[in-house]
Write a protein that binds this DNA or RNA. Sequence first.
RNA 1: GCAGCUGUAGCUCAGUUGGUUAGAGCGCCGGUCUGUGGAACCGGAGGUCGGUGGUUCGAGCCCACCCAGCUGUACCA
Length: 544
Amino acid sequence: MAKDKTSRLKARTPRGFADRGPAELAGTRSMLETIRKVYELYGFEALETPFVEYTDALGKFLPDQDRPNEGVFSFQDDDEQWLSLRYDLTAPLARHVAENFDRLAKPFRSYRAGWVFRNEKPGPGRFRQFMQFDADTVGAPTVAADAEICMMAADTLEALGIKRGDYVIKVNNRKVLDGVLEAIGLGGQENAGRRLTVLRAIDKFDKVGIEGVRDLLGEGRWENPEAKSGDFTKGAGLDAENIDTVISFVALQSGEFTPLEDVTGRTAEAGAAGYEIATYRTEQGDASHFVESNKGIIDGLVNSFGNYTTSRQGIEELGEIAQLVEAAGYGRERIRIDPSVVRGLEYYTGPVFEAELTFQVADEKGRPVRFGSVGGGGRYDGLVGRFRSEPVPATGFSIGVSRLASALSYLKGAEAAPDYGPVVVVVMDRDEVAHYMGLVARLRQAGIRAEMYLGNPKNLGNQFKYADRRNSPCVVIQGSDERAAGQVQIKDLIEGAKAAAAITDNAEWRESRPAQFACAEDELVAKVIEVLDHHGVPHGAALG
RNA sequence: GCAGCUGUAGCUCAGUUGGUUAGAGCGCCGGUCUGUGGAACCGGAGGUCGGUGGUUCGAGCCCACCCAGCUGUACCA
């Protein structure tokens, strides 16, 4: 079929999707392996579910319509049932547990890694296909299950090489929020919409600050507040008193008003636990000592919201979590009670978690890059219950593998090790291809990545260029001279590149044949291994 | 969805007040070179100037609309 220029196909990946090269694949693979080991250490077991689910199982039909939510990729089966690509790993887990409920040992503890799909506008670091790695405990109502998940999240980030202090696991409880919302008259089904607006406002605390949240709780907020220009976001329309109530809640973690724990009389103990102690003195010279601790935050919550029934229950759960993680040695620098975390606006029913990276790096243009949330989770006691007559408690955590991988690549910077290619056996004599293939086979049997040059062999230089591009550690050469002597030439390309740095003349370059030596054909494997080991190139069992 | 900015070769970009056949660097392919990577030199491929319409003797350049991308914002189960 003749193709003129105008009708030629344009090769391109769809918006929000990307191909992944060998370096990225290797990085992801080792990350997944690290995460998997931590999850297994905690007693979770592997599970895989398909990419496609019935849309109703995902709970993603638009209200009152016969059509799935636009945010999920959907299509109809030949029997006209709606199918969708999974948009997270939690809804499919709930389906799996419900489907196999009687067979599974409860509590059921499983982990899953895989691609999920969202039909949304892509952006920097946001794709329409990305990978998550989840762990969930289904059938355990105790907050010990939640506390454990938080500790595991901290362990996982550290196992991935993120230093303590460069991340934090924030914990909140939806019940605390719900109680506050009830108290300001936003309880009940009829206020679901306004409740959502309030939650979103709180969720934006990080971005817009305390005054921004105040605007969003009241009339609304302009994208550029000074100029009153750009987009206007309509607010929740609360009155001043209720705004103050909500603000006082958010402010508990704002740094402007963080309740402290009084450790007067036990400063030695607090100091030993690693707390930074703040000291205040009265005019009479009496000293009081305080630390910023989870207990302090919880005491503050009890003081402000302890008389709301729903909130009180949530605060007690947070207190238990704080106590459990503290007892296990996880202090506030790792797991932090933080009332501003909202997370997962729909199905969470109790504790919610968010894993955040706190270090900052600059991108190639010198602008600061914030990574923010790299994982999150919480308790979703209602999700499995949708399929059954009774509620089933469940709690879980999800790591955004793709986003975390890009954060890690910034952290590691340029030190990413080069991936070495295979040993290349060049073709000097076309009639001897069978013999060259024999050499390659010997190398492969010894566990060495190797291949014969399969392109046009007429120009030896091209074969070296190819090996160079593949980042091959060395090439194997055998012409008629060597064959007659029962020898091969091994050329160490890594050493050669160093040795040749001083040579500027092409003729001299060719003549000198840097880092090249001859050996008996029988010694081929042993000598190649010497070269590989010298440069730390993996082979044999180390290939994995 | 809304707002701002940007669309010229694979990439980064020039392109004069609107004036002949739209250029450069890098990259790519080939050659010098069928016994040696880099360098060098020579040659080649690759463009409906994002699209359509308009103004004009004449548009890559001016105007209108559309499309795409980027950034922010909204939404994000």
